[in-house]
Amino acid sequence: MLNWKHKDLLGLEELSKEEIELILETADSFKEISLRPIKKVPTLRGKTVVLFFFEPSTRTRTSFELAAKRLSADTVSISATTSSIVKGETLKDTAKNIEAMKVDIIVMRHSSSGAPHLLAKAVEASVINAGDGCHEHPTQALLDMFTIKEKKGRISGLKVSIIGDIAHSRVARSNIWGLTKLGAEVTVCGPPTLIPQGIEKFPVKVTYDVEEAIRDADVLNILRIQLERQKSNLFPSLREYALNFGIDAEKLKFAKPEVLIMHPGPINRGVEISPEVADGPYSVILEQVTNGLAVRMAVLYLVSQGGK
């Protein structure tokens, strides 16, 4: 198996199939740690991980923080409201200041696409993208793929449909890159206003027909719909969205018998997914959360030495 060579993890688009597989296999080795009575290994002892979050996030931040702690790293959380960004300091200034305190890894969530790329160029510390704007959210896609692999035994040859706001979704983009590199067939589905421009150049199929997206799929990854999009006239109302694209038991009648239902969370119950589907027998939503921990431990472990 190859070694990890990168200082940072910014997105899946720039990774090779082998590199993605390495992360998934490493994550597989880490999963067991969270089942031990003492859920901790000394691997990153003495390393400092900064969680630099410019957008509210509970699950991703918690997941990264626990992952770092289970590897014995020290963690510091900085959120936009407590940092000096509000005082007119630029992102780079703040990052340089944090780096001056000798930190090893910066996990960053930011509402601007490309913000982690700016940071990665500015600092020597490793940067892990925990979601940037509408660009990528690599660890979410990795945990999605990990969960699919765990449940289905493979990724290659599977049909995965991603349903919802593709245009503004970093989860969709990272999933498209990761899944297709590993040989899955990806279909994206949503109203045309939520399908990105230039989609024909992405390695995906597009449909506006939710039935079609569901029919042959082995996996349905249902995206969260943001309320703000309604205000920009991207769809008329949540009600109409739910009627057309919300996944409920009725629509699942078209699905394969062993279909996996995934959602990156947090769920808008009754909008993009109905409660009976979210809590139903095909849902692996909570397993995604569990696997997120293993994936993030693997990523922290790999980048902690990468690129030196």
């Binding site: 696409s113 704007g133 509408c134 660009h135 421009q197 230039g198 992405f202």
Partner: peptide, 15 residues
């Protein structure tokens, strides 16, 4: 510019 690249980079496009 709006198109494939703006979608790839997750940057809002100007048609």
């Amino acid at each position: 510019n709006e198109g494939y690249l703006s979608s790839l980079l997750g940057l809002k496009g100007i048609p």
